[in-house]
């Protein structure tokens, strides 16, 4: 276990190093200087800005400074909004994103598992067909289109839910649905197929023949064992919720990290794009590591190599 953990952490660190290096050199390769003469009226101000961002030094030295800053947790400063650090943007935006994202995460888990279980166990064929139909639609329609359709139907036409900002609890309904529909579909597909597989196992038959009530068998034995693929999917789902927030937050005008990132892309605010990318990379790699370790430790059949 310790060896496996160490290896995974090592790979994670190398990945982060590569990600931040690639990000740095990609940004350096951008045509045109981010310090334009329109913004800095006098040559002195421009010179000061160039020195501030170390643009007068050779690229390798800039890379060294950048990496050193990164190691000290300093992600740099925005080039568009004066005096704001990348950490400021993250500190402001991430809690909002995390709030919406974690609600979507829970909804996706609960909804997906119940849909998938229903589809796997129901005697009636139409129940499983309906569940799988919902799942196919959820997989096929991109989250931002779902968001727009929701706004069109429930916001603009029916006026049921508000769709700007996050002032009231009702504001959360549509962004959360838009974000969680895809993971719900994925989880219900995974749950259904692994549930069907698990219900054929000997220990289920044994539990049933010992006279355990059906409900108890399903909850205590089947669901627990059918959850493994779902736990493994939690990592990709986390990544999906974070990247999905880019557009969903923009559409619903939610002041989270996603909409900040989108507007920085529009403004070509390179340090913030870079910083947020690395921040998200760290989060996702850590989360993937955690899910891998959890899925390995809850199922002894998975060998830790």
């Amino acid at each position: 276990m310790a060896k496996y953990l160490l290896k995974r952490i090592l790979i994670g660190i190398v990945t982060l190093f590569v990600l931040s290096s690639v990000t740095f050199f990609l940004m350096k390769a951008t045509p045109g200087s981010p310090i334009s003469s329109e913004k800095y009226k006098t040559p002195e101000a421009m010179q000061a800005a160039i020195e501030k961002y170390h643009l007068d030094k050779p690229v390798i030295e800039q890379y060294g400074i950048y990496m050193n800053d990164l190691l000290h947790g300093n992600l740099g400063e925005s080039m568009v909004s004066e005096g704001r650090t990348v950490a400021y943007f993250i500190g402001n935006g991430f809690p909002v994103t995390a709030k919406v994202g974690s609600i979507a995460f829970v909804i996706a888990l609960v909804g997906g598992i119940s849909l998938g279980t229903a589809a796997a166990l129901s005697e009636k064929k139409w129940v499983s067909n309906l569940c799988m139909f919902v799942a196919t639609i959820g997989v096929s329609i991109p989250s931002f289109l779902i968001a727009m359709l929701l706004i069109l139907v429930f916001g603009v036409t029916l006026h049921i839910f508000p769709f700007v900002g996050l002032r009231t609890p009702a504001n959360y309904v549509m962004p959360v649905i838009a974000l969680s529909l895809y993971p719900i579909s994925m989880i219900s597909r995974l749950t259904r197929s692994s549930m069907i597989e698990v219900m054929k196992q000997d220990y289920i038959i044994l539990a049933r023949s010992k006279g355990t009530p059906y409900k108890k068998v399903v909850i205590k034995h089947a669901i627990k064992n059918a959850m493994l693929p779902v736990v493994t999917y939690a990592g990709p789902m986390f990544a999906f919720l974070l990247t999905g927030s880019f557009v969903v937050e923009t559409i619903f005008s939610i002041p989270g990290l996603g909409s900040t990132f989108t507007s920085c892309i529009m403004n070509r605010d390179y340090p913030v794009i870079m910083g947020v990318t690395i921040f998200l990379g760290i989060l996702i790699i850590t989360f993937n590591l955690i899910t891998d370790v959890i899925s390995a430790s809850i199922d002894p059949r998975i060998k830790l190599k």
Binding site: I11, G12, V14, T15, V18, L19, V22, T23, L26, M27, A29, T30, P31, A239, F240, L242, T243, F246, I265, R268, I273, T277, L280, G281, I284, I285, N288
Partner: peptide, 24 residues
């Protein structure tokens, strides 16, 4: 395969955005 694992662990959207932003 370790290289693939590494590339895989970062969401594709981040690469795509980065490349499209840089190359216009």
């Amino acid at each position: 395969m370790r290289f693939v694992d590494m590339m895989y662990s970062i969401p594709d959207m981040l690469y795509i955005i980065m490349i499209v932003v840089v190359l216009e």
